[in-house]
Design a binder for these strands. Structure first.
Length: 408
RNA sequence: GCGAUCGUAGCUCAGUUGGUUAGAGCGCCGGUUUGUGGUACCGGAGGUCGGGGGUUCGAGACCCCUCGAUCGCCCCA
């Protein structure tokens, strides 16, 4: 009849127990903090036309060609499960006329999909928190966004092991000049670079800067720095961001090797990094993407945003205690099951969380009920209800009152 | 796409240089005891040792293939 049980898809996870509690804690904290900063909640589609991501990411990259979950629908149109939030939100900003709300602060969270090899903190279906400010060209937007991220990490209780690394990529011209200088510099040492970096020289030269290969690191130290190519405006912008962070009390450190692969990034780039998650140390990252809207056919629109991996945050948060119920009820006699059900319903209607034990060996129900660490432990037998609780437990009187209507 | 490590009960793991009928703890189910904040004891269910092939008198163990997991490289929107 039944064959072999289907296995879960590689890179997906069934999150349960303490892990699920940590996950929920991360999301709840994000929702709370996001309100403090007045970011509006948005719900976005899980899939979009492939074009949305292909155009925003730049068609050439591996990212688009190999790492997206794309498929044709029945009409023959190519669709893609969202690999990030930003492109979809940008699309909505344009198609839904959200310009009328600019500057628009939005936040969301949910599943994302990337066809990658799973490893620590990396999954094919994973989950992110996301925050974006669209239509704000001022550095204050960057500051507010980063301050929110900083407060989130603090409220999650993980700020200690995490540092904010900050860099600027300059405006379009600064960035191009720096890029050209890097290519020239690394080309001169081409033969001494790692094979991977020789390849990167063509595909993505900025990425040589964060190579893990020791052969590359020697040259990275003396590579041209963005600071020497920044326009006066770009310098001012970065100074305003760092000054704002200082004013807000957000600790940061400069990382001149922090780069973004995609061309639409300008000015601020940042990552909150930890060394406690193995090779996947970035816990929250983002930057300013002033060039993105145009790649989707919209008007030039400044924007800045970040995303954070919920799984990684949950790992840092650690195991959360699963709180016991308000009441744990052991029905120690099968003749009293209906009475137990009635009492349980009444307690829940009164706002108490209740767990009932009315199956299995009647003699063992009490022990099971005791095990869940309820604030009040109630047994029901022919002698009626019998409450046990710690001396100062609040609400015991109310619980008693609810139970009293069922006799004793 | 590449590499390393690892797959034994629901979970965590023992299992000797290859040797009789594959074990423990926890959990689950039942019973006895206790009789009220987690007791103790007894019993039970649950395994084609990831799968396939090979070496051997004999494989959970050794070899090959395969599947899966973990971690790392590449990539990282």
């Amino acid at each position: 009849m039944s064959g072999k049980t289907p296995q879960p898809i590689r890179g997906t996870q069934d999150i349960f127990g303490a892990d699920a509690e940590s996950f929920a804690f991360v999301v709840e904290t994000f929702e709370r903090v996001r309100r403090l900063y007045r970011f509006r909640r948005v719900e976005m589609p899980v899939f979009e036309k492939t074009e949305v991501f292909a155009r925003s990411l730049g068609e050439t990259t591996d990212v688009v060609s190999k790492e997206m979950y794309s498929f044709d629908d029945r009409g023959g149109e190519s669709l893609t499960l969202r690999p990030e939030f930003t492109a979809g939100i940008a699309r909505a900003y344009l198609t839904d006329g959200w310009k009328q709300y600019a500057p628009l602060k939005v936040a969301t969270h949910g599943p994302l999909f990337r066809y990658e090899r799973p490893q620590k903190g990396r999954y094919r279906q994973f989950h992110q928190l996301d925050a974006e400010v669209i239509g704000a060209a001022e550095p204050q937007a960057d500051v507010e966004l980063l301050t929110m991220a900083d407060q989130l990490l603090k409220e999650l209780g993980i700020a200690d092991g995490v540092t904010l690394q900050l860099n600027t990529l300059g405006d379009g011209d600064s960035r191009e000049a720096w890029r050209a200088a890097l290519i020239e510099y690394f080309s001169a040492h081409r033969a001494e670079l790692s094979e991977d970096s020789q390849d990167r020289l063509e595909r993505n030269p900025l990425r040589i800067l964060d190579s893990k290969d020791s052969r590359d690191k020697a040259f990275v130290a003396d590579a041209p720095r963005i600071d020497d190519y920044l326009s006066a405006e770009a310098q001012d912008f970065f100074a305003a961001v760092t000054g704002g962070l200082d004013a807000a009390g957000v600790a940061w450190s400069r990382n001149p090797a922090l780069v973004r692969g995609l061309d639409y990034y300008r000015h601020t780039a940042f990552e909150f990094v930890t060394d406690r998650l193995g090779a996947q140390g970035t816990v929250l990252g983002g930057g300013r993407y002033d060039g993105l809207m145009e790649s989707l056919g919209g008007p030039a629109t400044p924007a800045v945003g970040w995303a954070a991996g919920i799984e990684r945050l949950a790992m840092l948060v650690g195991d959360r205690e699963i709180a016991g119920p308000d009441v744990s009820l052991a029905v120690e006699d099968n003749a009293l099951i209906a009475k137990g059900i009635a009492a349980t319903a009444a307690l829940r209607a009164a706002g108490f969380s209740v767990e009932v034990f009315d199956s299995g060996s009647p003699r063992k129900r009490y022990d099971k009920a005791a095990k869940v660490q309820a604030r009040a432990l109630v047994s029901l037998n022919t002698g009626g209800f019998n409450i046990r609780s710690a001396p100062d437990t609040p609400d015991v009187d109310r619980i008693n009152q609810v139970l009293s209507q069922f006799g004793s």
